[in-house]
Amino acid sequence: MTSLEDLTRLVPPPASPPPTDWNVIESLLQTPLPDDYKQLTDTYGPGVFCDFVHLYHPHGATEWVDLTGPMPARLRRQLVADRDSGTCPVPHDPENLFALAVTDNGNRLFWITTPGEEPDAWRIAVDQADGRAWYTHDGNLTSFLVALLSGHVRAPVFPDGLLGNGAFFTPARPADDGPPATPNPAGATTSREVIRQWARSQGYDVPDRGRVPGHVIQAWERAAERFRR
């Protein structure tokens, strides 16, 4: 039995979560993502576990829970600043941390993205809101959620009463405008096919071949600029 099967038995998912085009998302982020996260997201959609753990989602309703929004980069910059100033201990290289969830208490969950070419081997790190204590889970996100929500493991940075009302999931409204595709960090031009996929996800009527209409490219560029901020 897989960790996802364990999780769905423990916490029933919603009936019809929104679909995600992972080719577009991974092109946008310029990195492959763990299979367990993609399966988890396809099964549950955007939402929150136990009214406490808000998973980042490619269609997060706000920038605070949007996997493709500005928060992962902002948090990484903050961790770099904390490390360089010596204000807070960071047990992992901040450049290898990718934020994937936040809690109501301000804890952040991160992927430890090493080895970079093997996302299914990425482990999970959790910090306290003040960054002064960390917990590392030697497994993927889904196995962490199973251990946490079953009560078999207690992350010391989480409150004791997390499971006071049992384990449950509350769906959130997905974002209206979806994640944009964006040029890669080296400045290479994003393929027209990626723009077409993004445009169709936003309801634009674009041809399968040939020129992408100018107003569609402009809309994509505006969305990409929001992502880069």
Results as ranks from 00 to 15, higher is better:
200 R>T: 14
48 V>M: 04
190 T>E: 02
129 A>H: 12
214 G>S: 14
194 V>P: 07
201 S>E: 12
54 H>M: 03
114 T>E: 08
205 D>S: 04
18 P>E: 09
45 G>K: 10
52 F>T: 01
147 A>T: 07
126 V>T: 04
19 P>L: 13
112 I>Q: 13
198 W>Y: 04
160 D>I: 08
178 G>K: 15
94 P>A: 02
152 H>S: 15
89 P>V: 13
136 T>N: 11
53 V>A: 01
25 I>N: 02
33 L>S: 08
145 L>E: 09
23 N>T: 14
194 V>Y: 14
35 D>K: 06
132 R>D: 10
161 G>K: 01
215 H>K: 14
35 D>R: 04
209 R>K: 12
118 E>P: 07
185 P>S: 10
105 N>H: 14
159 P>M: 03
229 R>I: 10
89 P>E: 15
202 Q>D: 01
175 A>F: 07
180 P>M: 04
227 F>K: 06
36 D>Y: 09
80 V>S: 09
27 S>W: 14
166 G>L: 03
135 Y>C: 14
55 L>T: 10
117 E>S: 13
62 T>M: 07
109 L>G: 12
74 R>V: 14
202 Q>T: 04
147 A>Y: 09
169 F>Y: 09
99 A>W: 04
216 V>Y: 01
155 A>C: 15
210 G>V: 05
132 R>P: 07
34 P>A: 06
135 Y>S: 15
42 D>R: 15
157 V>Y: 08
148 L>H: 09
142 T>C: 06
27 S>L: 12
200 R>F: 06
152 H>G: 10
123 R>G: 13
121 A>I: 12
123 R>A: 10
60 G>H: 15
61 A>V: 14
95 E>S: 01
11 V>W: 08
114 T>M: 01
